[in-house]
């Protein structure tokens, strides 16, 4: 009896069946897009047509829904009204932001998505200046459904350490760190081929720049890989050691960055000392250019703040980090060793 009395309150405290909605009775969003035109906010998404999986892909695997509104709230409201069922954000794989809204500010929209209880924070975020609906409808070879293409491509490249993956969780983390900067892959569809052509750079939820400098990866991805062509020799460099040390003295930020790479050839032929030297020079220039651009636009898209936070979170909280960037100085040391 005592046990029963103990367990009864437990059941009353459980959630209950009010969130009971079977998955086939929901519109499963595989991807959403948002953009801003001159007057309105455009919002849409790809809804997976689940019947197509059991129907030998006879129907379109994804149906687009879209809505417009003067404000983000209106657009969201209209999107819900245009959907046949409750929208299910739990299977979302990509959030594609148009450059229009990216420049105006994405924070409110991303925070709205983040507040969806079923959303996974690992959902990838992209920026594009192309046709948003075309990106959502794009279906890569062997993809399960349309709407996955951007996520599939970036996941593959990320696993190969050739691209940065930015998720809603990463963006929320940057927001929580004093609106620190972050980079988001910039995608486009050209000649029916989807590709990542660079990164949109953000501070405080607004796009402040664009770069296709691959050295961004050296700061943000462990073991980043780059391919080079020195003369006629294809070479691969792999980041082996990274040391980024920010120092703040008298209100001035100085970055001491040191990178060690291992170089190899595709064919297994030895890499000469001269080739290593040439690569060092090339990579040094790339890294310096990345830091210079960060300084120029005042955006910490290289995530230097993470190194500073690792040194002292308390100091970082006291500093106006974004304000330090325009006056930043740096020293870069790159060395390449044959593998």
């Amino acid at each position: 009896m005592k046990k029963l009395l103990l367990f009864l309150p437990m059941f009353f405290l459980l959630g209950g069946c009010y969130p009971y909605t079977e998955v086939e009775n929901m519109d499963i969003l595989t991807s959403v897009y948002v953009d801003k035109t001159d007057e309105d906010i455009r919002l849409g998404g790809g809804v997976a047509n689940v019947r197509s999986f059991s129907d030998s892909m006879a129907e379109d695997p994804v149906s687009l829904i879209s809505a417009e509104g003067e404000t983000l709230e209106n657009a969201i409201q209209n999107l819900y009204q245009s959907a046949d069922h409750e929208l299910f954000f739990g299977a979302l794989r990509a959030v594609v932001v148009g450059e229009g809204l990216a420049k105006d500010g994405t924070e409110r929209f991303l925070r709205y998505l983040d507040a969806q209880p079923r959303l996974r924070r690992s959902t990838a975020v992209f920026v594009t200046d192309g046709d948003l609906e075309e990106i959502l409808e794009y279906k890569a070879i062997n993809d399960f459904s349309a709407g996955f293409a951007a996520d599939s491509i970036i996941t593959t490249l990320y696993e190969e350490k050739q691209m940065r993956y930015t998720s809603i969780g990463d963006v929320m983390y940057a927001f929580s760190c004093g609106d620190a900067g972050y980079s988001v892959p910039h995608i486009t569809v050209e000649n029916d081929v989807m590709r990542v052509d660079g990164y949109a750079l953000f501070t405080g939820g607004k796009m402040v720049g664009y770069t296709n400098n691959p050295s961004l990866l050296f700061f943000t991805v462990n073991g980043a890989v780059q391919r080079h062509l020195l003369g006629a020799t294809p070479l691969i460099t792999r980041l082996m050691t990274r040391s980024v040390t920010p120092e703040v003295q008298n209100g001035k930020l100085h970055i001491a960055a040191r990178f060690v790479f291992a170089a190899e050839t595709d064919s297994g032929a030895p890499v000469s000392a001269a080739q290593c030297k040439a690569l060092e020079k090339k990579l040094q220039a790339q890294v310096e250019a990345a830091l210079a651009y960060s300084k120029k636009i005042g955006c910490d898209y290289l995530e230097l703040y993470k190194s500073r936070m690792a040194q002292s979170r308390a100091d970082f909280d006291m500093e106006q980090w974004n304000a330090l960037l325009p006056e930043m100085t740096y020293t870069v040391q790159v060395s390449v060793r044959a593998r």
Partner: peptide, 29 residues
């Protein structure tokens, strides 16, 4: 639990397989 309460706990592809299997079934799970 996965079909009716926590479909988001599965990878997207599995969620869709679940949904496609259930599509057309007249009774609740």
């Amino acid at each position: 639990a996965l079909v009716a309460f926590h479909a988001e706990a599965l990878p997207t592809a599995y969620t869709m397989v679940l949904a496609s299997g259930r599509a057309g079934v007249p009774v609740t799970v």
